[in-house]
Nucleic acid binder design. Structure first.
Lengths: 211, 211
DNA sequence: GTTAAAACATGACATTTATCAGTTCTTGTT
DNA sequence: AACAAGAACTGATAAATGTCATGTTTTAAC
C-alpha cells in the first residue's frame, strides 16, 4: 500500500508543528520535499486573478502534500495553509525520488492513486460549472460530514470559517452566509457560532441532486 | 519518453476509424484498453445532473484516452466523442499493465505526466469557479488557437459548434452565442458560419486577466 | 473583564446568467 | 433547386449571484 510505504519512509524523517493559519508552503515555491499530515487539516488553495482564494482540497491525517510538484519537477501551484494546529513530517525529495527509482510497486501505487485523484478532479470541475452555489454548499457540508465526521454534540468536526466555505465552493462570502442562513431557516442545518451541524441530511442530498 | 514508448506499443496494435459524432467510449463503461489518437480530435465529457454535458478536455494527435480508468481499475467517468473524423489505435489493458510492471521508467514517465495533468486540473477548477463566462469564453478561444492553431484563412483550425463551446465553458448555449456576438461586435474576433478567427488576441487576453 | 479587530449577518441594489419563445441562417438530402 | 432539420441567433424576462454599505456578534489580546 502506498500509505504504508510512505509511513515507513516518513517515520524516519523530521516532524514539524504548524500553527493554525500558518503556511506549509506557498504558491510558486519550489518544494524540496513532500509533507505528510500526521495531525490536523490543511487547505490547499490557489489565488485567482480577482484576488480570491480557491480552495482545491482539504488534506487530513495520512495525506501527502506536494508530491505532484516534486514528481513533475515543477513549482507548486498551490498554497498549503493549516486550518487548525497541525503536525506534519517532511520527506526530502531525494528520498522520494530514490524510492520511485528503486521500488516499482511504490511507483505504481502512487500512479494508481493519482489516476484516481484525476477522476475526482473531473467531478469537481463538473460540479463547479454545472451546479448552483446552493447545491455546492449543500454538497460541501455533506463532504465535511463524510470526510471529517461529527463531534459529540452533532456538529461537523471540522469547523471552517464562512470565508473558507465560500472559498471551497467558489462564491462571495456574503452569498455563502446568506445560503447558510437559508438552510438554517429551512431546518437543513443548525449552527452555534461558526459551528455547523447537519439536521436533515436527506434534504441536503436531494438539493444536491437537483430537487 | 512516454509518447515514444507508447507509440512503440501502439504501432503493433489495432487501428480504428471513428466518424465525427461517434463515441470511442461512454461514461460508465469498463474499458479494456486505452486509445491513442493518431488523427482528429475527441471531446471528453461528463453528463451533469441537469442533463448538460461538461467537456473536460479536448484530446488530439498523440494523446492517450482512458489510461486513467485502466490504471485505477475503475469504470470510466467520461465519454469520449469524436469532434471530427478520427483515427485511433487501441491498446489492450494487458499490454499496458505488462509495460507498467516491466518497465519502471515508463511508469515513472506516466506518473510525471499525470502529476502535470493534476496541476492543470487545479487551474481549470479555479477558472471555472472564479472567472466569468465572458472570461472563460475568451480563454477558450485562446486555448483553441494555442493548441490547435489556425487555418490558412486565419480561422481557428478546430471548429466547435456553439453548443460544444458552451459545454467547454459550462454555460447555456444562448449565453455563449450572445457573448460570441459581443466579441464580434467589439472586434475581438471574426466569424464565418461556425468558424471563428481571432482578430485581437491582446484584448482577449486582457479580458481573461480581468480588465 | 474590556476593548479592538475580525468574523458574521442582513438589506438594497447592480450585474450576470439562465430560460423561454421565437426567427433566421446553414447544411445535407432528395 | 426545394426542402426539412438542425444550428445559430435575438429579445424579453426571470433567477441567481455579486457588491457595497452597515450593523451585530464573536474572538483574541491585553
Amino acid at each position: 500500500m502506498s500509505k504504508e510505504e510512505l509511513k515507513k519512509v516518513s517515520d524516519s524523517k523530521t516532524i514539524k508543528k504548524v500553527k493554525k493559519g500558518e503556511p506549509l508552503f506557498e504558491e510558486g515555491e519550489k518544494l524540496n520535499g513532500v509533507f505528510c499530515v500526521r495531525d490536523g487539516v490543511s487547505k490547499l488553495s490557489k489565488l485567482s486573478a480577482n484576488g480570491k482564494d480557491q480552495i482545491v482540497k482539504l488534506a487530513t491525517k495520512g495525506e501527502v502534500l506536494g508530491q505532484r510538484s516534486v514528481i513533475a519537477e515543477e513549482c507548486t501551484n498551490l498554497s498549503a495553509i493549516a486550518v487548525n494546529d497541525m503536525e506534519v513530517c517532511f520527506i526530502p525529495k531525494e528520498s522520494i525520488n530514490n524510492t520511485l527509482q528503486s521500488n516499482p510497486n511504490f511507483t505504481l501505487e502512487v500512479l494508481r492513486h493519482m489516476a484516481h485523484d484525476l477522476k475526482e478532479a473531473d467531478d469537481v470541475i463538473v460540479n463547479m460549472s454545472q451546479k448552483t452555489v446552493k447545491q455546492r454548499i449543500a454538497e460541501a457540508f455533506l463532504y465535511l460530514k463524510n470526510n471529517f465526521g461529527e463531534d459529540e454534540d452533532g456538529f461537523l468536526a471540522l469547523t471552517l470559517s464562512r470565508e473558507d466555505i465560500s472559498n471551497v465552493v467558489g462564491t462571495a462570502t456574503e452569498s455563502a452566509i446568506r445560503i447558510i442562513s437559508e438552510f438554517k431557516k429551512k431546518g437543513f442545518i443548525h449552527t452555534s457560532g461558526k459551528k455547523v451541524g447537519i439536521t436533515n441530511e436527506r434534504k441536503l442530498a436531494e438539493l444536491v441532486e437537483g430537487f
